[in-house]
Amino acid sequence: MADGHKLEIFRGLVKFKSNTQKIWGVLAFLTLITAVEVVLGIIKPVSLTDTYLLGMKLINWVFIILTLVKAYYIAWDFMHLRDERSSLRRAIVWTPVFLVIYLTIILLVEADYIYNVYKDGFVSWNF
């Protein structure tokens, strides 16, 4: 790998002087996100647990989005995808992203259907 590390994160908002500094900066950011997740998970704010978006609690969307943010920084800065060629980056990222979204949507829709079969159909489960 070339010595030229890209030292900007947050689209150039934060610029580090060296690669080592960037690593510690990313660690601080990841720790902050994990702390936010844990605090949200413990206090469970009513405003987030009572609001639903696309059939899921808002708090769960928050968790999933924060997770994707964390995943982005792990892949981009720890696995230094940021410094790789964009062709390699796209090949690595979009393949699983496409397949995972596809699989998840199919499985969850199907699971919801089975849930309704159990609920409304003549299936006794609570005995």
């Binding site: 699983p96 397949l99 699989l103 998840t104 969850l108 199907e110 699971a111 919801d112």
Partner: peptide, 20 residues
Amino acid sequence: ALTFSGFLAAYGFSRFKFIE
């Protein structure tokens, strides 16, 4: 990553199936 996604998607499947 796809293997793990398969596991987690299967987890989501079972969870949505017994969501209540």
